[in-house]
Design a protein around this nucleic acid. Structure first.
Lengths: 328, 328
DNA sequence: CTGAAAGCGCTTACAG
DNA sequence: CTGAAAGCGCTTACAG
């Protein structure tokens, strides 16, 4: 097998304690023995078993991050932000992608639990009846889902949605479609409520479609429904759906913008690359990721009875080429 | 702190051994005591410390996956394939994204090493002088990079590249641009060699640009260079660069297809969504991911002196809307 | 079927 | 500054 601390101890003629200190807590050992130990350890090809170290030290210097779907462009910016923040605090990030299988979340979280110092779960899809079990795996913070007694970072959809609806009504649209996201998605419920409220406030008629999965193909499928319904403007649950919608409308010769206005949500990197460029509601995913790191690491050394923090972040509309005045 | 095995043992009046078996190796214990133990453990909210379990059992049931950049659409299909295969073999996948910082790869691999049963490193960017150290963290398999004595899955670029160049020359193009990827990228060297060979074989003139990072913005930047050079056809290191190139050309009123032909590499999901749709060389990332899982898990229980397997996979051209006959 | 003991590979008070 | 000892929370031969 591989070289252990005991092997190095034997080779140096010192105790395991001293070797351990020379490697992990250098100040506590005589400089000359320290260097001797380190050299011998290196020569022997000693690589500390970080599992064992974590078990005794009770620390991993790792943050665990669980996301629903790494392929959804909404998540990479969050992941990058989590990594940037965690790195700046000396932690490594390990990611689990549950591939939109909500039932797996709890299992993955348990697998990670002791291997990390804290868990960030983005948009937990975990069914309600298991959510409490997930929340127990503290330190843990939810992004985009609230549970009493659990730390969370919440992105408030209402401002951005209000701006989107105002933008459309200002362009003359009176009938607005909303493409629902996944049926049980917490985010979709938030967005659905927000669009209903905003349309009611603006006196616009709202027609809902879906639910749709947050994938391009779902948007492609939505396109024909939307067009058949005669909507002049539509807001999609997310950019993936909006992009699929646009692709299919393009294909059918329906001009996005002039013929039908489309608004996405997430302001993902692709929204500026699409044709036409996609008007989208910016969701501060990066800020949310950074905030989640701060919270979960604070939690790690907070007393158990401290009230778990809840941070709120706002959204706003980014206008691009896919929205135009109502045709005719 | 949390409930330990010893706590449960005390509560049941049994030894830790029996409790351990009741939970992890149920067949070795009397059914009635087994159920009693399990019930009490559940009631006490016992959650086994998987770190400790892994340390003694020497198994994690986890596969570690290291990728250069999760936001690059080339990687998610590989990740998904790795997960699908690993799941079917009862393993969980933990992902590390090194965010295009090659120097971090070795460190991340070490952090993961004992927490997983095997490591898959996709497109290792690790500098040559550290690569051997990385390769020592066995069981490990590289995807898209070769190192003697190390298991790997290699995607052979030459077939797809030859098809791409043939396609362009058949359309009448005589001067073909190639947008290089990152300078030290192993993949770029492979692709560069392949395009040089293919152009030489077809008697086409090759003009190289770059290096460019595999990002949309780099493609945007490349667009003006390419257009100024008078190329009628260009092959990009990857789809990201190709998409950025197309976006900028669109913006300048240069029609991709009729005015200039563009070919990407990777056949990422977005290539079918772009405007126009992007002709691209399909790279069998999913197959590579699945193969890597098979190899790394085999390695885990292979004798140390077994020759590490090397698997080769082929590429092919997918023709879409971004390539047309040479103008004029 | 169950238990006592040793051990996985480290770290960390506690002495000296 | 260094070492002996106990311990982190489990698992697993070995006895019985």
């Amino acid at each position: 097998m591989s070289v252990t601390l005991a092997d190095v101890a034997k080779a140096t003629g010192l105790s395991a304690s001293t070797v351990s200190r020379a490697l992990s807590d250098p100040d506590k050992v005589n400089p000359s023995t320290r260097e001797r130990v380190r050299k011998i350890a290196r020569d022997m090809g000693y690589v500390p078993n970080l599992l064992a170290r974590s078990l005794t030290a009770g620390r991993n210097d790792i943050v665990g991050l669980i996301v629903p779907d790494i392929a959804n462009p909404f998540f990479p910016p969050i992941i990058k932000a989590v990594q940037a923040r965690a790195t700046s605090k000396g932690k490594t990030v390990l990611i689990a992608d549950v591939d939109e299988h909500p039932a797996d979340e709890l299992h993955r979280a348990r697998v990670m639990r002791k291997r990390v110092d804290g868990l960030i779960v983005v948009s937990p899809r975990t069914p309600d009846d298991q959510l409490a079990a997930l929340a127990e795996l503290r330190p843990i913070v939810f992004v985009n889902r609230e549970l009493p007694g659990t730390a969370s970072v919440i992105i408030e959809n209402s401002d951005g949605m209000r701006e989107a609806v105002e933008h459309l009504t200002a362009l003359g649209h009176r009938r607005i479609g909303y493409l629902n996201g996944p049926r049980r998605s917490w985010s979709n419920i938030q967005r659905q409520n927000a669009v209903r409220q905003a349309c009611a406030d603006q006196g616009a008629e709202l027609v809902e479609f879906g639910p749709f999965e947050p994938q391009i193909q779902a948007g492609v499928r939505a396109a024909d429904l939307v067009h058949a319904s005669g909507m002049t403007a539509v807001i999609a649950y997310d950019d993936m759906i909006a992009l699929g919608l646009m692709a299919r409308l393009n294909e059918r010769g329906i001009r996005v913008g002039p013929d039908i206005s489309v608004i996405g949500i997430d302001d993902s990197p692709m929204s500026g690359m699409a044709y036409p460029t996609l008007t989208s509601i910016h969701v501060p995913g990066a800020e949310a990721g950074a905030a989640a790191v701060d919270i979960v690491l604070d939690l790690a050394d907070a007393p158990d009875d401290a009230p778990p923090p809840v941070r709120q972040l706002e959204t706003r509309l980014i206008v691009r080429g896919s929205t135009s005045p109502v045709p005719g």
